[in-house]
């Protein structure tokens, strides 16, 4: 039982990742796939943050002089997530623009129909 309580964050993060993947795999509409990607990315960011979490840890900022260094959360995953989020934004922006252009060319966003480039 302690597995569930101990790893709730990890389970949450991984389920988000799996849901995101499921959406990407199954959905026909391109916009839904893009949304699936954002869920997938959020899941990853949550997992990264969960890795660096310390029980009852505070944010690693010395705003007040008297803070204890030992209780602080690990700052490195947060730095990684910061970078990963910006990359996620960049990719999503490009994906959205391409979706617009696809719609301009094909008139539909149904991935099963956008199949000219094959074999």
């Amino acid at each position: 039982m302690n597995f569930l309580s101990e790893y709730t964050y990890y389970i949450g993060a991984f389920s988000l990742i799996i849901i995101g993947l499921y959406i990407i795999l199954v959905k026909k509409n391109l916009m839904k796939v893009i949304i699936g990607f954002s869920i997938f990315d959020t899941g990853i960011y949550l997992f990264l943050i969960a890795v660096g979490y310390l029980r009852e840890g505070t944010a690693p900022v010395f705003s007040k002089p008297g803070l204890d260094a030992g209780k602080m959360v690990d700052p490195v995953p947060q730095a990684l997530v910061l970078t990963a989020i910006v990359i996620g934004v960049a990719v999503l922006a490009l994906a959205v623009i391409l979706a617009i252009k696809i719609y301009a060319h094909y008139g539909t966003l149904n991935l099963r129909k956008i199949k000219e480039q094959r074999w």
Binding site: I114, R118, W119
Partner: peptide, 9 residues
């Protein structure tokens, strides 16, 4: 080459 069906899914 039919493996590459063209469908991203």
């Amino acid at each position: 080459r039919r493996i590459y069906t063209g469908d991203v899914g």
